[in-house]
Amino acid sequence: MILTYMEIRDSKIKKASLEALSEAKRRADDLNVKCGAVLIGEGLKALTEDVFKYGASQAFLIENPSLGFYGPSLYATILSDLAAEVSPRALFFSATAMGKDLAPRVAAKLGVGIATDCTQTSVSDRQLEVVRPIFAGKAFASFRFSSEPQIASLRPNVFPLLDPVSEQGEVIRKEAEVSPDQAQDQVVEVIKGEGAEIDVTEADIVVAGGRGMKEPDNFSLLKEIIALLPNAALGSSRSAVDAGWVDHQHQVGQTGKTVSPNLYIAVGISGAIQHLAGMSSSKYIVAINKDPDAGIFKVADFGVVGDLFDVVPALKKELEIFKE
C-alpha cells in the first residue's frame, strides 16, 4: 500500500493533500499496490467521500475529540503506530507547513529516510524514485530509499489532481490512545491573517514586487491586480522584505519560499540569483522592469520593459476590460 496523510484545515481536506493522494494513486498503480488515506481529527466521516474520489480505496480514520488541534508529537505517534501495523511501502505527505513539521517526526520514529518537498515521483525496478530541488532549486537531486516505508512530502501545486471518480471505499476506524505526555507540543489557537489570504506556495498566480516598488504603499497597486486574478497571492523579493515593506511570509527565494505557480508576475524585481532559484520553476513568468538588462528577463516568457508605475495601472485597466 501507499498511504497518504490527509491534512485537514477548517474542516476540509487541503487541496495539496488531494494532489499528494492523486500522485500516490498513480504510483500505487505502477507498483500494483493499494492506495490508502489516513485522516486524524474530528468529524472525519464526512471527508471520506473526497479521498475515495481522488484515488484511495481505504480510508483510515483516527477520531478523537482531543485531536481537533494539531500536535506533532501526538500525530506522529499515531501515524508511526499505524505504519507499523499496516506496513505501507510508502507514506506520502504534502509539503505544507504541517507536512514538513510532521513527516520527519514520523520518519525518525520509524528510523527510515524521507525526501522533503519532492517535485517528481516515479517507479522503476519496482522502486520509488523521487526528485527534489536543493539549494532552493539551483540543483535537483534524485533519490531512492534504502528503508521502508519510503517517506516523501510532495510540493503543493505541482502534482495534478486525478479526475474525480464516484467510487466507494472501505472505512477503517482505529483507536488512538492519547496520553497527556504526548500532548507536549499542541496547537492551542490558529491565528488567521487579515482577510482570506492565500499563501504564495498554494496560489495559482503569484504577483511579486521588489525594490522597484519604491515604498510600502505602492504594493496596493499589486493587490489591485491580485484582486482581478483567480487564486492569486502577493509575493516579494528579499530586498522588499528587508526594507520592511512587506511581511517575510511573502518572500520568494532562497531565504524565503520556493514556488511553482502557473503564473509568476515579477514587478520591479531585478532577478538576483537567490530570487530566481525560488521561482524559476513557475510555468509562465512575466517580468515588468524598466531596466532592459535586468536578470529577470532571462527567465521571463513575457517581458515588458517599462516603468511599472505606468504599466501596472494600464494592466489593471486591461484586465478589467477583459473581465467584462
Binding site: R9, Y70, G71, T96, A97, M98, D185, Q186, V187, V188, E189, V190, I191, K192, G193, A196, E197, I198, D199, T201, E202
Partner: peptide, 8 residues
C-alpha cells in the same frame, strides 16, 4: 502556516 499562524 499557510495564510495564518499557529500558537503552540
Amino acid at each position: 502556516i499557510e495564510g495564518a499562524a499557529e500558537k503552540v
